[in-house]
């Protein structure tokens, strides 16, 4: 079973993604902010990290930077969700090290499709 970490501060969105993914048989760990996300990443290996961009304390970007610096975790696959959908922001996000990007609001089914695609790549 593929294991995914979801870091999202908005509870309703977390619930939406978790419901969408779990129905398809993914195991989802939840983190309410970047800080918790980093803690969980440290403790386990995930097939995919779904990170929200804007989170309190430690943002999604900071999480990415942190991971990419970590030799053990630097190859993790990252999908970033963001309300910032300007071209410049997307580029910034991909530059910093996200592998995939999806803007809010998003279609949960499209997200699911994207996740399956990423995981099946390997």
């Amino acid at each position: 079973m593929k294991k995914i970490l979801l870091a999202e501060d908005e509870e309703v969105l977390r619930m939406l993604i978790v419901d969408t993914m779990e129905d398809e048989g993914y195991e989802i760990d939840e983190a309410v902010d970047g800080k918790e996300a980093l803690e969980k990443i440290e403790q386990a290996d995930y097939d995919l990290l779904i990170l929200d961009y804007m989170m309190p304390q430690v943002t999604g970007l900071e999480v990415i930077e942190n991971i990419r610096k970590n030799p053990l975790k630097k190859d993790a696959k990252i999908l970033m969700l963001s309300a910032k959908n300007q071209q410049s922001e997307q580029e910034k996000i991909l530059d910093i090290g996200a592998d995939y990007f999806m803007s809010k609001p998003f279609s949960p089914l499209a997200l699911l499709e994207k996740v399956e695609e990423i995981i099946n790549e390997n």
């Binding site: 309703v12 969105l13 969408t20 309300a83 809010k104 609001p105 998003f106 279609s107 949960p108 089914l109």
Partner: peptide
């Protein structure tokens, strides 16, 4: 704005 929209969008889609 996008956050509630995303919820509405996502849940209705589901």
């Amino acid at each position: 704005l996008r956050t509630p929209l995303a919820s509405i969008y996502g849940y209705t889609e589901l």
